[in-house]
Every structure is written in C-alpha cells, then in structure tokens.
Simulated assay, not measured.
Amino acid sequence: MSPELSIVMPCLNEAETVGICIQKAQSFFEKHNVNGEIVIADNGSTDGSQAIAEKLNARVVPVLEKGYGSALRGGINAALGTYIIMGDADDSYDFEALELFLEKLREGNDLVMGNRFKGGVKKGAMPFLHKYLGNPVLSFIGRLFFNIKIGDFHCGLRGFSKEAFGKMNLNTTGMEFASEMIVKSKLNKLSIVEVSTILHPDGRTRPPHLNTWRDGWRHLRFLLLYSPRWLFLYPAIIMIIVGMILSTILIIQPITFAGIVFDVHTLLYTASSVVVGFQFLAFYALTKIFAVENGLLPKSDRYDNLFKYFNLEKGLIAGFLILALGIYLSVDGLLAWKATSFSDLKPAETLRTIVPAVFTVMLGLQIVLFSFFFSILGLKRNIKLKKKD
C-alpha cells in the first residue's frame, strides 16, 4: 500500500541532527498509527548524513541541483504519500507533534502552514533580526500584496497534499521557495489554513545555511515580481494622477507654497511624472501578459479584461489624439514666436505651452507604439485559444 503521509526533509550536512529528526518522525507514525515514509532529500552532503538516514530506514533521494527549493522539490516529487509534511532536518521542529497538520490535511485543506509566532519561539531559536524585522515585514508584504491571511510566511514546517503540490507549479530553487508555495497556492485558489507550532533552537554546532540579507532580498524580490500590481500598476496610477493634477495647475499659474514659488521648472518634472507613469502602466500590462502566457501566473478575470476593453484600434485613436494635441500646442507656440518676429521670448510664458506640447507628443507616440506591441501579444494569445478550441 502507498503511504498516507510522506515526511520530507531537505538535508545538507545534517549528520548531527538528521537521525534525531528521523526517530521523532518514526515515533509519530507509531504513536498515531500512521502509514508513512520518511524521505531525506539530500543536496550533496559530505558528512555522512546519507548513511545515518539509511541506517534508520529513511529513504534517501539525491538531488543534484543546489538550493533549498531544489532539494525540497526533488524530495517531494519522489514522495509516495497522499499527504506531505516538509520540515528542516536541524531538529528545530518537533516531528513528534504533527497531529494538527495531518488532521487539517485529512479535512481536505490543500496547504497547512505552521505559525511559529502563535506556537512559540524558544529562546535562541530565531535571530533577533528575523524575529522582529525580517519575518514580520515580509509576512506583512505577502498579506498585503496577495490578500493571504497567514501570519508566518516563512515557517519551514508545513503540509500539503501531493495533488495540491502539482497544481502549485513551483520553480524557484532557493529559500524563496517558501514564499512561492504560499503565493502560488493563493493564485491557484487552493485552500490554506494555519496551525500553531513551536520553534526550538536547532541542534547543530555549525552556522545555518540561511543568509539573512541575501535570502531576505530573494523573498522580497519574489513577492514584487509576482505582484505586477504593486510593482507597476499602483505606482503608475499615483504618478499619472499626481502629475496631471500638478501639471494642469502649473500650466494655468505658478504655485506658491510656504513662500516658495513652483513654476515652469517644476512643470518639467510633473509632466515627466505622467510619461513615466504611463511607462509603468505599459510594463504592468506587458509583464502580466508574459507571466500568464508562460505559466508563471494563473489567468484571472482582470487578465481577460485587458483584451476585452483595450485593443489596437482604441490605442491608436487615443495615441493619435494626444499626439495631435501635442502638434497643435507646438504650432501654437511657433505662431506665438512668429508674432514677435522670432525675437526673444519670456521663458515662463512660452514654456507653459512648449512643455505640455513636447510631453504630449512623447506620450502619444508611446501609446501608439505600445498599442502595436500589445496587439502582437494579443495575436499570440488568440492563436493559443484557437488551438485549444
């Protein structure tokens, strides 16, 4: 019979603790009458960890590709259980206390996350920066970006069904694998629950593999790249709205604030904000299309609406109208200069026409070019849809 539960532990030189973890997992199987297996995903240990695991009847799966995510993915793919619980082989998690995880999995939940802050972090178990800065901040960003009600994004003890793991389609190789699992579960509309767990000081005498700043950045980078809305869309909206409001006011008259006069020089920056904001908006649309069409993000109603409400014709009309406005303002400025027999002009007055003229020409051309590129990507999408039909 296939095992009900596979406990997968990534391992890289864990000879001091891997045996303890295996024995605790075996004790859990025996105590709760669980048909289970223990899979050690070895990532190239040179300290005899493999021999210790094999002696204790654990199944060792060699994983050549380096990295925390690579090791786990290799071990999970090789696991035979209906359910899988993953946890580090450093004795920081108690493999004898997995009943809540298995209970939630049996209830039909796709992903069961441990929460170390609810269960308790023992003294010396977590570095100060991780406990009070790294984990809270990154977990907050994850909840904000993806609307996931999880308090501890980076708990290494978590369970999921083998079927759900297949739907996640995980790709990362490093520590960001932990964030990817939660984000992909949410994006694929898998059910996620959280249970309390206790984090103990690990039993190793060597330093941990985790690098605080490098791995923290990898987690943050992943969260940003998988949320084009926060990386591109929201900054675009802010820059366009603020830029248009301030530019409109500055075209009419200077702004005086706290005794400081903001005039045409400031208008250059506010107009630039509109153009840069549009570039952010274009990157949002193009990134979204690329990510969805290449399987990095699942399709959503918002994605389909991109093609429903925007097409080449609408983009060209909008672009050429804005371009025409820029040309009109340019001609108007030229005629005003001609009226003075091409003599010296008053910069403050002239630039109120010329700056909007230049930036509307730039914006109009960008919209036209973006519309063509967007249409090309849409053709690729339509070809895929026809092949499916």
Results as ranks from 00 to 15, higher is better:
S191G: 08
L12M: 07
M86F: 05
F374L: 14
Y284A: 07
F145Y: 11
S70Y: 07
L5E: 07
T248K: 13
D263L: 02
H32E: 15
S70Q: 12
K338D: 01
Q23T: 07
A178E: 15
K386H: 04
F117Q: 06
K338Q: 10
F262I: 05
F117A: 10
P208W: 10
H265N: 12
V275F: 15
L220N: 08
D88F: 04
N33D: 13
F370E: 09
G378A: 08
I85P: 12
F153G: 01
G174P: 02
D91G: 06
L329D: 08
N147W: 03
K66H: 07
G259K: 13
L369P: 02
N115K: 01
G315K: 00
R302H: 11
R221S: 13
P127R: 11
I260V: 15
A336I: 09
F290K: 10
I148T: 14
T212K: 06
E54R: 10
V292D: 11
I354W: 07
R106P: 14
T340P: 02
I85H: 00
A25M: 06
D90L: 03
A53N: 05
E194F: 04
K24E: 09
F370R: 09
K122Y: 06
L231I: 12
S196D: 12
K55V: 08
S139L: 06
S191T: 15
T82G: 10
H32Y: 14
A324H: 01
F320C: 04
G333F: 09
L102G: 09
N35S: 13
I148W: 07
V8D: 01
I192V: 10
V242P: 05
V112F: 02
E194K: 13
F128G: 06
D332N: 04
I251W: 01
L220A: 14
P62C: 05
K167I: 02
E96T: 14
S191N: 15
R106Y: 08
F373E: 14
I85Q: 04
F310T: 11
V112Y: 06
I52W: 09
R302N: 11
